[in-house]
Simulated scan of single mutants.
Amino acid sequence: MAGTDDDPALLLTDFVNTLNIDSATDGLTTPDDLAGWLAGRGLAPGGARAGDADLRAAIALREGLREAMSAHHGPQTADLPAALEDALAALPLRVALTGERPVLVPLDPPGAPAGLARVAAAIMETAAAGTWPRLKVCQEGTCRWAFLDTSKNRSRAWCSMSTCGNRTKTRSYRERRRV
């Protein structure tokens, strides 16, 4: 997906959206899928290999991010979900001071773990840019697609009003009519 390399918020939504719940497709079913996804976004060199442990780490990171983004619909807390904390703790990262603020930097050597560490570092970049709390997942239970809430009051609940918003509102209307 073009542009995700430059925008950490889009990188994070792209990563979470490797699992499309609505269509029941997963872009990360094998280690080769993971290596290809990372290489395709410039997060790992082409030809880098990923193993089963890397795939497990990627899925844990993805689902931890989805959980954290789900929490952005409610009252904001500084705590990250335990699943995300665990996933981050397993990645090869270090803190570096560059300019006026600390950043997370992946450790060498380049490869799948460092590529996942670059995804994790995007969390810090979005927090510094103020977009972290705007990263959400669709509240439609059959969707759960990650998106960047660009609404003025940060109240967007669905990835798409025309699709998921309409599904939810129609379902709610039908339930009210049955009663």
Rank of each mutant, 00 (worst) to 15 (best):
L65W: 00
W145A: 02
A128E: 12
E63Q: 03
N153A: 15
T131H: 08
E100L: 07
D86K: 15
Q139I: 01
R66G: 04
T126C: 08
T30G: 06
C138L: 05
T170R: 14
Y173E: 07
C164E: 05
N166F: 05
A68K: 01
R134D: 15
A117Q: 05
L80I: 00
L88F: 05
A87T: 11
A129F: 03
S70P: 00
P109Q: 05
R62P: 07
A57Q: 13
R49D: 15
G47L: 06
P106M: 02
K152M: 10
T126H: 06
A60M: 01
R41A: 10
S23I: 09
D149S: 06
H72A: 12
K169M: 12
R144S: 05
R178L: 11
E175M: 13
P8I: 02
E175V: 14
S162P: 00
L11G: 02
R174Y: 09
A89N: 15
L55A: 04
G74V: 09
T4M: 08
P113S: 08
P81W: 03
V137L: 08
G47T: 10
D5V: 08
R62Y: 03
P81G: 01
W145C: 01
N17D: 15
R118M: 10
G111P: 14
G47K: 12
R56C: 01
T131A: 05
R94I: 01
A78D: 14
G165T: 09
R177I: 08
D33C: 10
D149F: 06
M124F: 07
P113F: 04
E100K: 11
A117K: 06
A24S: 14
S162K: 11
A44G: 12
S151R: 14
C164R: 04
M69E: 02
P110L: 06
L34A: 08
A122R: 09
L34P: 14
L107F: 00
E100Y: 03
G64N: 00
G115P: 13
A82S: 10
V105I: 04
R171S: 15
G115Q: 13
G40S: 13
R49M: 12
P92E: 04
A50M: 12
F15M: 07
G51I: 04
L11F: 04
L65D: 02
L12A: 04
A90M: 05
A114R: 13
C159H: 12
T18F: 08
F147D: 00
L61E: 04
A58G: 11
L104C: 01
A50H: 12
